[in-house]
Nucleic acid binder design. Structure first.
Length: 296
DNA sequence: ATCGGATCCTGTCCGC
DNA sequence: TGCGGACAGGATCCGA
């Protein structure tokens, strides 16, 4: 579930293995994901040292020592996993157990790091993910990153900022929050969760939580606080559950969250004192979950 | 200019 | 058990 918190969790999980390691080889096992891999990506990556692992919105950023950055988006079903040790160390049968899904391993970073040899493997059954490579100095001009809104974790996001963006918009809150140009990193799950926390109905027009002069209402203040909290909580949960995940199967994928409203159709609303039942509607072709009683 | 809808692709789950 | 349809965490493109 690669929304911002999941990508951040993946970044933190990969950093100890990747940062400071040398890319012995980047192995691309097909020519494209959603888009073709950039021309000469293998050659550009091979032999480079990884200086840092970063993130912008839902994009993982792999900074190399020649001033370039590999951009990786996980799409809907992308994940990374780490395998340690030389390939030949795996007995055939055991290796098979480790990689039930091997046909969807599309890119393999063969690494040599302070902790030895390892592989970081990108797996993506639906292939909605993609990679690009850019010069760091021009990263904000990259078509994928250009125009992205502020991170919900930083100071740039404020009720005043969002009020300006939402002023005059008839678009539903749900769609406005999914628009990465307004806020970067929210996806279907955390938009539902944030609106639930703020007691706001997803179908409401975005402009209804802005005053005539473009100032934030109390509801907008509450929404922004809810977004911050939801994201912070999810990152915290990811960080704590990741450890166990690595220990059990050596993979860095997604972990099951317990959501308050997402995927809870027909179940009781979890707002204290609320007697409502979670409803599911479709907005812009995607499921929205909300409580018709406490979200107004 | 702003919308919603269709689209890319595979896997899983549920009802018959 | 097999089969068909609905559905899935995203983002872009196109047409109304």
């Amino acid at each position: 579930m690669p929304e911002l918190p999941e990508v951040e969790t993946v970044r933190r999980g990969l950093a100890p293995t990747m940062e400071g390691a040398r890319i012995v080889r980047l192995e691309l096992r097909r020519k494209d994901l959603r888009f073709p891999f950039p021309e000469g990506l293998e050659a550009r990556a091979t032999g480079r040292n990884i200086v840092a692992l970063g993130r912008r919105a839902k994009y993982l950023l792999i900074d190399l020592d020649d001033g370039t950055t590999i951009i990786s988006h996980l799409g809907m079903s992308g994940s990374f996993r780490i395998e340690a040790g030389p390939v030949s160390d795996w007995p055939g049968e055991f290796h098979h157990l480790q990689s039930k899904d091997e046909k969807h391993d599309h890119a393999i970073f063969h690494l040599e790091g302070p902790h030895g040899i390892s592989r970081v493997i990108y797996n993506d059954p639906r292939r909605f993910g993609f990679m690009d490579v850019v010069h760091r100095s021009e990263i904000d001009l990259n078509p994928f990153l250009f125009g992205l809104g502020p991170e919900p974790t930083g100071n740039e996001l404020s009720a005043a900022y969002l009020a300006e963006r939402f002023m005059g918009k008839t678009q539903p809150l749900k769609s406005a929050l999914l628009d990465q140009k307004n806020i970067a990193g929210l996806g279907n799950i955390y938009v539902c969760e944030a609106l639930w926390r703020a007691h706001l109905r997803p179908a409401r027009a975005a402009a209804t939580i802005v005053t005539k002069t473009g100032k934030p209402t109390k509801q907008m203040e509450l929404l922004v606080a809810s977004i911050r909290d939801v994201i912070a909580d999810a990152i915290k949960a990811g960080g704590s559950s990741l450890r166990d995940h690595i220990q059990t199967d050596g993979s860095l994928g997604y972990f099951q969250h317990s959501f308050s409203v997402y995927d809870r159709e027909s179940l009781p609303c979890r707002t204290p004192g609320c007697s409502g039942t979670v409803a599911r509607i479709v907005q812009a072709g995607r499921s929205t979950f909300y409580c018709p009683v406490c979200q107004k």
